[in-house]
Amino acid sequence: MSILREARLVAAKDLRIERRSRVALQQIVPFGVIVLVLFAFAIDPDRGLLPRLAPGLFWAALLLASILAVNRSFAVEEANGARDGLRLSGLDGAAIFLGKAAAIAAELALLELVLGVGVIVLYDVTPRNALVLFLTAVAATIALAATGTVYGIVAAGLRVRETLVPLLVLPAVTPVMLGATRAFESALGGVPSEAWPWVQLLGACAVLSVIVGVLAFGPLLEES
């Protein structure tokens, strides 16, 4: 499958840029941690509340940080006409989409690990039901990265891209936020079997957002 090879090429390019510029490591990850700490400040007086709210706060922090990741992913294409280069490279639009989404997903996975440790240490959460947590995280990460990439290219090339992306992405990912939070709640403190419908919902979101991206990214890239 040449499309997967092309996708790997684009993903490797994006990740190489991130490794050299260290924006993801030195700005996006710390941002996520700061959000986590801010939530703790806001709810500090009631110690018992933090572990119960941890799933929602974890995903809210991740969502806010993922906006930065999406913006960053398209900011690197903005400079020096890199987007024109991508457009003229002859790569399949779907492959470019998959590549960029995979790179964002990899950054989000790293962020989830850091935030996960943060939640355990700062919010006093005991991890349980690793399988549910893992599947939830995988499906939610794919859905977030794919949706972010779609709206990233929708807003690409506009002067107000940085402020427009959150306005477009955040409403579109509410099902992901909801599903992931409820699944985590069930896994960590509730009835674990109640998590499965939410994991399925997340799976559907992931599949749908990837389909939309595969179909729409090419035409949108041509136009931007």
Partner: peptide, 14 residues
């Protein structure tokens, strides 16, 4: 909010 975003997108295109 989805359509608020859509309207914002329309306004920002040059």
């Amino acid at each position: 909010f989805l359509y608020l975003g859509y309207l914002a997108l329309r306004r920002t295109a040059d």
